[in-house]
Every structure is written in structure tokens, then in C-alpha cells.
Simulated scan of single mutants.
Amino acid sequence: MEREFNFQTVSEYNDFNNHETGHPLVSVIDFSQAAKRTGSKMHFELYCIFLKDVKCGDLKYGRQHYDYQEGTLVFISPGQVVDVENKVDEYQPMGHGLVFHPDLLLGTSLGKSISDYNFFSYYTNEALHLSAKERKLVLDLFAKLHSELHQTIDKHSKKVIASGIELLLSYCERFYDRQFITRDTVNKGMLEKFEGLLNGYFNSEKPYTIGLPSVAYCADELHLSANYFGDLIKKETGKSAQEFIQAKIIEVAKNKIFDSSKTVNEIAYDLGFKYPQHFIRLFKKRVGSTPAEYRTLN
């Protein structure tokens, strides 16, 4: 029977990887010190940043799969579950990681901004692939945190550690921006798929059965996490995914308004609006006139 682990504290994860606990809320892990193990399902109540250096099977993260490559950063937030499928019989974990408990962030500037780092809720196949230079920088930041954790804890420790983690996350934001750019061809293909998805949606019965298309629905249909999808669309178009969907709604609505056999209310229901006044409000906000006024003017 497959083993399952539930890591609620840093010390539990340290024990699992043969590490001493120097600080109860944060640890830098050298996975080469861990014993050999087989794949297993792991539940985390911690923030984790893993730099994996060895193939250990196909990682299942939600419904998505990801085959680890050297120099890849994976981010995990509290409450997430990581599983390994197509497991090798036994492997020696390698690489490094940073784990920290949410309580470490209380009263720090990072505690206020941690939710802004969307990549903690990306799917694993949306992981961050590092260049050799970027990998070295990440390892240097891990080393600085490791050094601080071996200092005597004083009133400055929490602020210094949280600032070090915040610096690491800021670099990761920069690296992700670079990754969005270097994958420009792939991203443009995804934008075309998004456009096609919306066209197909409004040419189907889905507005009647589902209602208006949500960002989460579109991301799921395109096999992306909602946050990664939103960040990708924002980088490519300068608009949020929600704004992109609303622009498509208005485009479709304008064409429908020229069919004078339908009332504004009927058009609203055709588009998936539950209440026609919501459609009228959105249309006026985006176009500058109500649907009825637009029909008259045109």
C-alpha cells in the first residue's frame, strides 16, 4: 500500500529528510542527506520551494503531471498535495529546498504580500525552468538563508530571514517574466486557443447551460492553473483574462444587437447573463451607451 505523509511542521519534514531542526519555522534542505525512498503522496501545510536535480518519476499535482528536469523550481503552498506516478523502485533524492511555516510570516512585510506570488498556486507543469546563472543565484540565496539559520536567534532573526525569502521570491518573479518572454511562441499559441475557446463557447449552448464563461473555466479547459493562465494573458495582452472575456462578450453582443428581432433582454440571456441589467451595465461601461442606444445609433 502506498505510503502517505502529512507534513504540518518544519521539524516533521526535517526528520523525513534526516535534517536537524535549527529553527522551528524554516529550514533549508539538502536532499542528498535524505535516505533513499520510493514515490509517495505528500500533504503539505508549509510553503515549499524545491530545486530538484534527479528524475524520480512523473509528479502528479492535482490533475496535472510534470516530469522533473534539472534546474527546475517547483512552488508549493499550504494545503497542497503532491503525488508521484510511474514511480521508480527506489531513488536517492537530490537537490535543495526551502520550507517555511506560514507562522514565520506573521508581522512581516512578506506576510502582507505572500498572496501576490501567484506561482505558489501554479500547476507543477508550469514550474520555473532556470538557466545555469539563475540556478546559481537561487543556490546562493539558499546558502545565505542556511547561514542565517545557524546564527543565534535574536530579535533581528525573523526580519532577516523573511527578507531573505522575499528577495528569493522577487528574483523568481523576474525569472518567470523571462520565461513568459522566452516561451513567446507557446504563449501566442495559447492566446489563439483562448480566442477559439471563447468563439466556440458563444456558438454553443453553453451560455444557456453554464452561464458566462469564467476565468477558472477557461483555464481548466486549456489545462492551466487559473493564476498561471491569468498571468500569461496579462503578459501577452496587457489585459486581465477577465477583461479579455468581457471584450469578447461585448464583441458578440454588438453583432447580436443588429438582429432587431431580439430584445435586449433576450440577447442578455443568449450571452449567459442571469440578469439583463448586469448585461446593460457592462455594455454601457465598456461601450459608453446602453445596448438599446447602440442599436438606435447604428
Rank of each mutant, 00 (worst) to 15 (best):
G97C: 03
I249A: 00
R295L: 14
K206I: 07
Y269G: 01
D103Y: 08
G272H: 03
K248V: 05
R3W: 11
F44Y: 02
F142K: 02
I249N: 00
Y47Q: 09
A35Y: 10
R3D: 15
I250R: 01
L106H: 13
T9V: 12
H65L: 13
L128E: 01
Y294T: 02
R286P: 12
Y68F: 10
S131K: 11
T72G: 12
S113M: 11
F75W: 10
R174F: 04
E20D: 11
D83Y: 06
D58K: 08
D220G: 05
N14I: 09
H19T: 07
P213N: 03
L73A: 09
H96C: 12
A247N: 07
I233V: 05
P78D: 15
Q179C: 09
G62R: 09
Y117P: 01
M1H: 08
N203V: 10
S157N: 04
T263S: 12
Q33K: 13
C56E: 12
L197A: 03
N14E: 05
R286L: 15
L167W: 04
N6Q: 08
A247Q: 07
F7E: 00
K193A: 08
G111M: 07
R183I: 00
L224C: 06
E85P: 04
P207G: 01
V264I: 14
V10K: 01
K144A: 12
K41M: 12
L212H: 02
H19M: 11
F50K: 04
N125T: 04
M42I: 09
T108M: 07
E12K: 04
V138Y: 13
